[in-house]
Write a protein that binds this DNA or RNA. Structure first.
Length: 307
DNA sequence: AAGACGAAAGTGGTTGA
DNA sequence: TCAACAACTTTCGTCTT
């Protein structure tokens, strides 16, 4: 029970176990196989108060909570410095320290709130701990740089999460983030771009293949179809059909074709819905795929098989 | 009747003068 | 800063299964 020996995604045995965060991650495909190890202790017992074992109740924050005061420990001066200051300077010193104190408590309060929101959204989207941690880091930096000013806390949280997802190659769409956080899509996109630019975070353009697994499972497609879709995706990339296009649209089209070829037909509407694009986009990508890649033969084979 | 297809007009973001 | 532009969406009519 304790160890997963193979990656359920790619079969690799090259796994990375992080006990602190309770995660097992496949180094080859990046899949988070298990991120619930922390939960193995006693469970919540809210409704068993007469059991007499209340002392064992697990309440409050989980064991690994995302830190909110990282790097904020800076104090203005040391006590020893006081003796070397004149009286004017001493006043200045206290003023500065008071000011510094106000700032840092304000930041702390903001962070506490923001990280609570971050956790909420993150658990709603079932994001791995690592991503959550990364998002928390990004948010903390953003606050320290004063980037939240003029923006709502929630939108910056969403932006940080979005960025963290992309960096860990487990992208969620802006729509999903939007649904989870209640922030408008464009707002998230805006703050995301702003924050990553200001913090100098580089983000690789997201790979359509990263979406396949999630889309396929919500469409209840088989593993074969899924790997076929990835195959198609690779060919498409080779044929330069992918650059400049929205990755979700391409992923959706590849899945659609793959499903057709394996006789697991889904309507364009169904695929479009889970991918968060329209049927039209799928049609356009789908047409391009048929044109440039020679998939027509395979499709015809499938049709014959039906008869 | 539902799904697939395609044309046309509209939207929001990027780019380059 | 503004206009041109590409990708994507919305809407709607027509064809196919």
């Amino acid at each position: 029970m304790y160890y997963v020996k193979k990656c359920t995604e790619c079969g690799s045995i090259n796994l990375f176990v992080n006990r602190d965060k309770g995660e097992i991650i496949c180094k080859d495909c990046g899949l988070v196989i298990e991120d619930k190890m922390v939960e193995s202790g006693p469970e919540w017992r809210e409704h068993e108060e007469d059991s007499g074992r209340e002392s064992l109740r697990r309440t409050g924050a989980p064991m690994t909570y995302t830190q909110y005061d990282q790097g904020l420990g800076t104090e203005v001066g040391q006590k020893a410095d006081l003796f070397q200051l004149g009286s004017k300077d001493r006043n200045k010193f206290f003023r500065l320290r008071k000011w510094q104190y106000r700032i840092s408590t304000a930041i702390e309060r903001n962070l506490k709130l923001a990280l609570a929101e971050l956790k909420r959204v993150s658990s709603f989207l079932k994001l791995p701990k690592m991503v959550e941690e990364e998002a928390a880091m990004i948010y903390t930096q953003a606050v320290q740089k004063g980037l939240v000013r003029g923006r709502s806390m929630e939108s910056v949280v969403s932006g940080a999460l979005y960025a963290a997802c992309r960096r860990h190659e487990v992208p969620r769409t802006l729509d999903e983030l939007s649904e989870a956080s209640g922030i408008e899509k464009k707002e998230i996109g805006r703050t995301y771009r702003f924050v990553t630019r200001e913090l100098g975070i580089t983000i690789l353009p997201s790979n359509p293949a990263d979406y396949i697994a999630r889309f396929a499972s919500s469409l209840k497609l088989t593993a074969e179809t899924q790997s076929k879709a990835v195959e198609i995706l690779e060919e498409a990339q080779h044929a330069e059909l992918t650059s400049g296009r929205g990755p979700t649209g391409i992923a959706a089209a590849a899945l659609y074709v793959a499903a057709l070829m394996h006789g697991e037909k889904r309507t364009q509407r169904e695929v479009a819905d889970v991918a968060g694009v329209t049927e039209v986009t799928i049609r356009n990508r789908y047409k391009e795929l048929l044109d440039k890649l020679e998939l027509e033969k395979e499709l015809k084979k499938q049709k014959k098989r039906k008869r």
